[in-house]
Structure formats: C-alpha cells, structure tokens
Simulated assay, not measured.
Amino acid sequence: MSLISPAARDALQAWLKGQRALQGAADNTLDAYARDVSEFLAFMAEHKGAAQGIAPLLRLTLPDMRAWMVFTRSTGVGPRTLARKLSAVKSFFRWLSEREGAEISAVLAARAPKYQRKLPRPLTEDAARAMIETVELQHSDPWVAARDMAVVTLLYGCGLRISEALGLDGRDAPLPDVLRIVGKGGKERVVPVIAAARMAVAHYLAESPWPKEDDLPLFRGVRGGRLSPRAVQKVMERVRAQLGLPASATPHAMRHSFATHLLSAGGDLRAIQELLGHASLSTTQAYTSVDQARLMEVYDRAHPKAG
C-alpha cells in the first residue's frame, strides 16, 4: 500500500464502505475488490513513476489501461480473472468519477479479452440419484452416513450452495416446507423443501450423537464442530470414483443438476432464478442448459403451428 497515495487509499476505503452498506457486498467480495483495486493503483504508481493522487487517476488514458492489462496477464492471470479485476476497477472509477464530477471514458473503454464461460456439467437424473444413494454407503458409522446423505439431498433437492446447506443451524430443524436462505451478498430467498430432504435430515438427527441445539450447527463434524465443505467434497470424490462419474460431479454440480432438471421438466426460468438466488436472469441462463431438442419440444408445444 506504500505505493498508493493517501488520497487514493482513502477513496478506496470509502468506496468499499459504500459497497458494504449500499450494495450488501459479502466479505469475500469486498476482500477481492480491495485486493484488485489496490494492485491496480500500485501498478499505476510504478507505471507513472509516482503515487497517483485523485486528479492524476482521473486523467488515465487507454494506453495506461492496456499497459496494466498486459502486465497483469504476464503474471499468469487468465482472461476470466482479468475480466473480474477490470470489473472491480471500473466500478471503483465510476464511483470516483461521480464523486469528483469527472469524465473517465478511457477507463470505461478498456475491454478485457474474451473468455469461454465454464459451466459445471449437470449429472443425469439417474446419476444424481445414484450419487445420493451411494453417499450413504461410504461410512460405517450410521450417523455419519445419514449426515452425508442429508447434505447431498439438500444440494440436489433444494438447489442450495454447499455453504448454505452447511450454514444451517439447529433452529432450522425439523425442516419446514419452505426455508428462508440468506445467500451471496445477503440476498434472501425462499426455497421449497422436498419431502425427501426433510426425511433425510430427520433421519440424520435421529442417528446423530450430538443433541440438536438452536445456536449450534445442524450438520456436525465427528468432533461436534460445523461440518466442513471439504468433508462433503471428499465423500463425493469417493462416490464418483465408484460410480465412474467425471471429476465434474462435485457438490456444486448437484445444485446445477437441480436447476437443469427443473428447466428440462418445463420449469420457468425466472422461478428457477429465484430458487437459485441469482441476482440477474442472465446468470441463470448461463447456469442452466438443456439440449436443443428439448427446447424445441417445449417451443412446439407452446406455439403449435396453424393449419
């Protein structure tokens, strides 16, 4: 931070504070923003030969932006990460330009290289069921087996992120017909809970040696602490090896499978967006994929040809 001027540092902190208060940005997001913009400001100080105050920053040119992007790529950063960093920088500069009443067209004109969006591949419905059933066979201790099955059933049956499932506390059980989930950025959504998930959690609690307490984790590790995501990832790694499933069969793929199977069954895209907790519909469109033949079948039913 020594390469960053006090004025720029103060501006960065004020912007981050606003992102937390007004946008509800999560801690991890704010940490990434702070790191990305700090690296940008430090580069510009080196590039220009001196720490850049607010006025010099607002005079940056498109060649300055390109120099930063070339340097960032040279450190081994891929196009997807560069796009994320550029987005953070632009967001900071938009805020700065509004505060200062200045034009920042050069910063906004910078374009990150295109990249191919990677999507987790969904499991087939049969593979998803086999995953849940086989997870239960992985541990000799009945309560651990029941716990792992309950977690994976929640991921697939309710479309929860693994952090959301493992963030549940004792007060959330017995599971109701609908759960209020606080997801990324503090965004709250209502998620229907299927009967299989309610039964799986009830079975786990009946088997668990740890008493259910409102303020303690619902899903416990063997020592009683909150179950870690890595423990779920490891059991799924074993299962996918046994079932011959690809490495893409991860906990997150269960959530992706939930969305894909709903869509392929004729589910409404906006309803699925709400269930997943996506801020924008475009995220859901990229996240869910069904084969073209299925889409055409739905289209033909909805728009029968006259005559």
Rank of each mutant, 00 (worst) to 15 (best):
W15H: 15
G157M: 14
G159V: 06
V144R: 13
R240C: 04
S289P: 01
A8S: 15
A55C: 01
K212G: 00
F71P: 01
V182C: 02
S140A: 12
V107N: 08
Y299T: 03
L216S: 10
L218I: 02
P113T: 07
V190I: 15
E297V: 02
A195Q: 14
A253E: 05
V201N: 11
E125Y: 06
L205M: 12
A293G: 08
K234R: 15
T75R: 15
A127L: 07
A67N: 10
P246Y: 10
L262E: 07
S5D: 04
L263P: 10
N28H: 15
R59N: 12
T250P: 01
A271I: 14
S280M: 02
Y33P: 00
V144P: 02
A50M: 06
H278N: 03
T250R: 04
A83R: 04
K90F: 11
A173I: 09
Y156L: 04
S163P: 01
D214G: 11
S264D: 15
S289T: 08
P56A: 04
D126Y: 07
Q292N: 12
A253L: 04
G186A: 05
A7K: 08
A173M: 06
L41C: 11
T260V: 15
R9M: 07
V290H: 13
L263N: 12
G170W: 11
A286Q: 13
L263K: 12
S105A: 14
S5K: 01
A259I: 05
A200E: 07
R147P: 07
R301P: 04
A55V: 12
L166K: 07
I4S: 02
G183M: 05
